[in-house]
Design a protein around this nucleic acid. Sequence first.
RNA 1: GCGGAUGUGGCGGAAUUGGUAGACGCGCUAGACUUAGGAUCUAGUGCCGCAAGGCGUGGGGGUUCGACUCCCUCCAUCCGCACCA
Length: 920
Amino acid sequence: MDYNFIDIEQKWQRHWDEKKIYKTKIDPSKPKYYVLDMFPYPSGAGLHVGHPLGYIASDIYSRYKRQQGFNVLHPMGYDAFGLPAEQYAIQTGQHPAITTENNIKRYREQLDKIGFSFDWDREVRTCDPKYYKWTQWTFIQLFNHYYNNKTQKAEPIKDLMSKFERSGNIDIDAASGPVQEFTAVGWRKMSDKEKQQTLMNYRLAYLAETMVNWCPKLGTVLANDEVKEGFSVRGGFPVEKKKMNQWFLRVTAYAQRLLDGLEEIEWSESLKEVQRNWIGKSEGATIFFNIKNSEKAIEVFTTRPDTIFGATFMVLAPEHELLKEICTPEYAEKAELYIKDSFKRSERERMAETKTVTGQFTGAYCQHPFTKEPLPIFVADYVLAGYGTGAIMAVPAHDSRDYAFAKTFELPIVEVVTGGDIEKGSYDAKDGTLINSDFINDMDVRSAIKAVIKRLESTQSGKRMINFRLRDAIFSRQRYWGEPFPVYYKDGIPYVLDEKELPLELPPVDKYLPTETGEPPLARAKNWKTKDGYQLDCNTMPGFAGSSAYYIRYMDPHNNNELVSKKAVEYWRNVDFYVGGAEHATGHLIYSRFWNKFLFDIGVVVEQEPFKKLVNQGMIQGRSNFVYRVKGTNKFVSYNLRKKYDTMPIHVDVNIVDNDILDIEAFKKWNPEYKNAEFILEDGKYICGWDVEKMSKSYHNVVNPDDLIQNYGADTLRLYEMFLGPIEQAKPWDTNGIEGVFRFLKRFWRLFHDDKGEFKVTNEQATEEELKALHKTIKKVSEDIERFAFNTAISAFMTLLNKLYELKCNKKDILQPLVALLSPFAPHITEELWQKLGNKDSIVLAEYPAYDEKFIVEDLITYPVSFNGKMRFKMELSAGLSADEIEQKVLEAEESQKWIKDKKIKKVIVVPGKIVNVVV
RNA sequence: GCGGAUGUGGCGGAAUUGGUAGACGCGCUAGACUUAGGAUCUAGUGCCGCAAGGCGUGGGGGUUCGACUCCCUCCAUCCGCACCA
């Protein structure tokens, strides 16, 4: 019987499903291991071969761990809220829940065919009210907590209120928005409304009016990580700045802990670096510059307080609040015009024009805190409102942007750190000695920074300051297909619902569009009010809300009383191994770390970091094929002849090209336009050109896993995806190579069968050579799995199979452990053979074979012998020889003479067990 | 501009600690079996050369008995961030 992968795979998939072989329960007698894939958004297009890459890798690892005796949690679910389903709903009126349900069905079918070891009983969907009940619950907790900087953790807002009762906010060190100081008396005097407004500045989920990223095309605000280069990541629509009242999460409270936590987790250095940059910690000072003829001061942040004596002017961002007050009548009009202009220009334009310097004098001056000299105040859009205080002290001699500005506006440039040439440009480096700088003259930069901060603090004109680039996350979206906020409004003040009223389910609406007055779609819902008649919030939560704690929910997915039970979270703890795309570096992977730390603070989870080890799978690129059309004709010329004609390359469907040879008949049928196409062939064939591009429908290079499973089977697909190369690396998909692993599995199958196709395995005792080959492979494969080098593990299997063919070995002693060893990679074929070998239990539970060092030791070593570092010949020597003996044997060898001849031997290097090098 | 990654045959890639460069696979060449081959098997396959041999891991330089691996420098490609004070 030939290798009938279709029957085998269907049979075992059904069997595993019926026997619930992958069902996982808490088992204190076994060590736990949690393997997680980033759950997919179920898009309408279904899976292409790039999607399962990470799932296959994590599945292999899960099966490997399971066989090693770990209790493995390996769940899967769907990130089911999202824009595409909603956009589709807007176009067709079909409820996004239906679209989503259909897409999930399609995904599930595709996933099932690949033979994953998911425990589907734990499936979660973010759009399921039973699931988002806990997303809403967590929001309520965030709303009801603030961040205490003294204890470095989230604490109940109730505690904060009793502190206010006792002593106002004077001794409070908490993460907050801009708050005025008040005493206990002041607190008690406040109205309820004022109290609520004050508390809002402290809550970890808060409502605030700020500049937000507004995307008019999507009709919603977006978080910073959802905007790239002024366009929305989803859809690519332009984004503008707009002042709006929105929900925020106070992620910045956790900035330091998010940074510190990176030290404890095994993520790639590059990914950690991206997070560090995103958090963007910088140390320096905040300095107050008093404004002339005003009681106000401009607060600036600088990382270079040492250069304070080189500050010759001040610059405010166009959004800066003080601008309105400080502009002198003479300049007010011009300044206003400049500010208006810079608002009009989109983010995009502003970024594109980084080279031109623009700005406007305000007419106002402020005072240098030390020299008391007046400094002119400018407004310029090279200063960003969103970073630091939105104002800078300009030190043109030591900052290239300030330098360019000073040159344009002919402002003085004062050198205060030696080492550069300020005639030519600014000197930004932190090396040098201070000059022209009063009390810090002759100091180096580091000591000068310290000295200036000390003086600032003693004169109360500034203080040491740590600044983060990380911004609080905008948490509300003006869309339909997301979690509703468990929030209602009373007197314009938001209150959260009682936990008992959760989940607050998404209401039906007549249209999935904003209302005529620009309200979000939920405003269309009938009676969108609490039972007491208060108006509910009309926003919904963003995509990252549902994905921030799904890994916790998998631990206890059906618990209707808690997000997760103590028992479950204390057993499963956190994710040991997480696989997913690097594109989530600044979104999901920051938010869920934040979310997890908060849940840790309030005692829901037991680990500070959610994902201990993380691997980013590389993108699978497409390999496109081209035909060359002779311009203005319906004639196509084969690849190597194309230069003789004036041609245009056209993408052709890779599924009608085999080994770069075009299936001409299929091509004619592919598109009616080519029905009567003519071809100029070479060697009777039409050869296509090729290139590596993104896998995309428009390039006709999408390969569907279903087709491959149909033709080669899931085991072959699994092996080939892994065989392509290292998991982290981006690599092109080329279906041609799949024959190699398919051949391997067919040969593997035949090893267990005789010429007639009858199962035949002998009980003969294995030879030393056979055992050595087996155990070397066990060792290699185990080590490779541990370091996620699945491609080389598969090579090792191929090498062993070649060896066993050479030895004509079909002994059970060898083949049985080999089947167990291969089963994480190719679970179906190995399960079938495992049963044929007489095993009753599933191979999923089979013990992972251990290798025995005693079979591996070599008694003969093949030494490569080099002369002057070039390998010339090989020599077999017994492993027990000493270095001197080896040297003697090598020099005596006949072949050595040819290389020594009459030359003098300078030196002989012998590395026992490795190499011999003769220097002549 | 800053940060990170990568660069090895016609192609995907291997070489884990400085020790045989090109494992394994695709493709290609030749042959065997076969009614047939898009099945299977055997042999070959980095480049130049009839050979002896020479050259060879993006380029140049260095350290070393020995460098894909370490150091310096330059180049190319990809990714991230981007007026971050």
